[in-house]
Design a protein around this nucleic acid. Structure first.
Lengths: 237, 237, 237, 237
DNA sequence: GATGAATGAGTATTCATTCAT
DNA sequence: TATGAATGAATACTCATTCAT
């Protein structure tokens, strides 16, 4: 690297990255606008200002390209969610922030949801989990964990049941809000937060839980842990 | 056809209906097994034991046939839901029955959910509502209305917000339960019913169930269910 | 079947057969003229006056079509060979007739030899024998068998060694004769027939023809043939 | 390479030759294993450990590379044949040695025969002769010439007819022997050698050929020579 | 109504070849 | 010379839909 050129090697790499980016941009536009079947590799290439063959240097298959587009969406969503949540706020507020962000984002880019389902299909395997979705989902889990750590939430909270309810409800609500052409509705989020009420821990001192009951809980936890091992933790998101 | 036949004119009509039925059956099988893109009109015709051209006497396009298949599914789902709900039970129980039925049915025929989304797409129109789905959704509304009539629920209850949460959560839960190969999980339904608590009008004041205790019981039930799976009763609900 | 139409059912069948025939004709022309790789399904369809898709109703694959074209060639060759051989002539003459016919036919349609090799390739199997070739080859065997039956040939004759020598030599000779633009050369056939001398059972002892004398005559005949070419009768055999 | 190296300039040339050699080796392997169509320049480059573009510095097109590969094969075959033939043995034995060598070699590397035919095709030109094959074929001619010189063979022997029969028969025999999974069969060679019997000159004294006949022969030879000129010696191998 | 042969538009993918570094 | 990223032409095959019997 000579002094006259601060990053000469990058010239090439940067070009490649710029291309990769323009391909992704073009693909996202076309997939979103035309749907998976309506999308042509030729059209993506045209919009990315490259030759059709070049597309295949970056993505082996139309399906692969779709998967990358979708992954990309969830990665950006993750980034946005991280920024939307104030870590120091009460967890119940954090949940509200996450839910609000999720609902808003889905409403704005609902096409990506359809693409996500199409991207999951994989050689007859029933479902192919996109890794980036898992990362996104982790944000919810982290908030709950934080809440339990801070004694704001009961450790009894059934994690994935709540998670499924939250995301499922928000996704579906986004769909119908779009249908009704309503840009956003906070009451949906409110409804959902009710779900967490039973697990909120009031810090005003109250009676200690029954010690016998407590020991029962501990035994239950042991059993559950052992079951999880037996079941191989199959299919957990 | 003998003269003794009570409805000779039906012979012809019956034939048509039988054909229509076999087409629908074949189409449902193929769409479900092969996906929309993997399905060919030729294969449907073969399974229905009719000529390819005949298909088009009954359904103008592949899309239309898909739509009818999907409509049919929701119509049958509606029928099942009506039978699953005991009109005279407390509405909160009716909601539980509906939710349980819905979750169970989706888990068993989740492929139809994917088909439903594909059937909605309509030549660039953003969404094409399938009428039969509306009928299905009405069942929920009717229960709520019944509850308000009977003074069991507050008229403040935000109807469609709750509806979206309920259906969205159940659909998504069905998806992930399938993924985890769990045949059914009642706790999802229970979580959702909490949502209606604020709108319950309790006539006989009674103690609020301890949420922790409740959840403990639920967890016990889940453990039993999972043990059942391990013991080879997989697939039974 | 009404009397007014002698074969009404055939109308349809005949159409199909006519199509099949025109496809084969077109395919043969194009494959022969352009080579396997130079041949396009579109071009074949065009020449056969049918749609491209129709081609696939008759032949599942380009390879399959090629195979049929080649089979067809050998079937016709077989027919011609049967007609060219006089069953009642001395077997040595029959062999000459067969060899002459074979050489002549190959010279006229040598492209088919190349196609034959290309048609043999089959999914990585080293060689895929085309059944019609076997039938063709049987003609040689039958003559030999006939000769042994009639005591004109010794049963010591090594059947397939001689067969390979005969066909291999004729094919290669056809190739080089074409290269030299010589329409036919009887001396090749004569050379080959020498091979059968040791196995001839001569019933009427007679003088062995002087090989030199014979070859002199043959050369004279060739000269005449070549002069004929020079005089513009090129192409006639 | 240090200055003590006796030919420092060769370092560079040697590198080039090593590359050329590794390209040829790689190309031969891939063409042989995958067939012409199954072979990609990329794969050849990979096996030769060079960049794709570099291939084109050594060989202008894929066809050219194929031609070189084939030429190379025939050059090596020529070398082997020269070594296989004992110049001092009786010519009939030399012919046997050549035939045996040829048959053996073809059986071992029969893929090259197919490649040879594919290499001949040249942009619509009917045939494109590979020079190295001519050199190989010359070996046969040399043996015959030697035989005539040594008075072991008659000068009447029709050179190229015999040549075609020999090579054609051997090639075809190799093909079918492979098919029958027979590694080698000497009887094929034996069969072929019978062909030369009529032209063998017995050194036991016998009657002088008819002088008139002789002069006739001489006149014939003159005519043939003149005809050859007229025909332009076109296409002779 | 029923048939099924015919249609032909539509496209992902490959790969020999080029050319800017 | 060497590289390997970029090119883009080229094509077999599918399948929803039509229409002559």
């Amino acid at each position: 690297m000579s002094a006259s050129s601060p990053n000469p090697k990058n010239t090439q790499r940067e070009r490649l990255e710029a291309r990769e980016h323009s391909i992704l941009k073009a693909a996202t536009e076309v997939f979103t606008a035309m749907g998976v079947d309506g999308t042509t590799m030729a059209e993506i290439a045209r919009r990315a200002h490259i030759a059709e063959g070049t597309l295949y240097l970056y993505h082996k298959t139309k399906q692969d390209l779709l998967a990358v587009v979708v992954q990309n969406f969830w990665a950006e969503l993750t980034q946005g969610a991280i920024e939307a949540v104030e870590v120091n706020a009460p967890v119940i507020e954090q949940l509200e922030q996450l839910a609000t962000y999720h609902l808003t984002a889905l409403i704005q880019q609902f096409d990506m949801v359809g693409l996500t389902y199409r991207a999951r299909l994989r050689h007859g395997e029933p479902e192919y989990q996109l890794p980036k979705i898992r990362e996104y989902v982790r944000i919810f889990d982290q908030i709950i964990e934080r809440g339990i750590d801070r004694k704001e939430l009961s450790s009894e909270l059934p994690l994935w049941q709540c998670r499924d309810v939250l995301y499922g409800a928000l996704e579906h609500s986004a769909r119908t809000l779009l249908l009704r052409e309503i840009p956003f509705d906070a009451s949906v989020v409110e409804q959902l937060l009710v779900m967490f009420q039973p697990y909120r821990i009031d810090h005003t001192p109250k009676e200690q839980a029954d010690p016998i009951e407590t020991s029962t809980l501990r035994r239950l936890e042991n059993i559950e842990a052992q079951l999880a091992i037996l079941l191989g933790e199959k299919g957990s998101i």
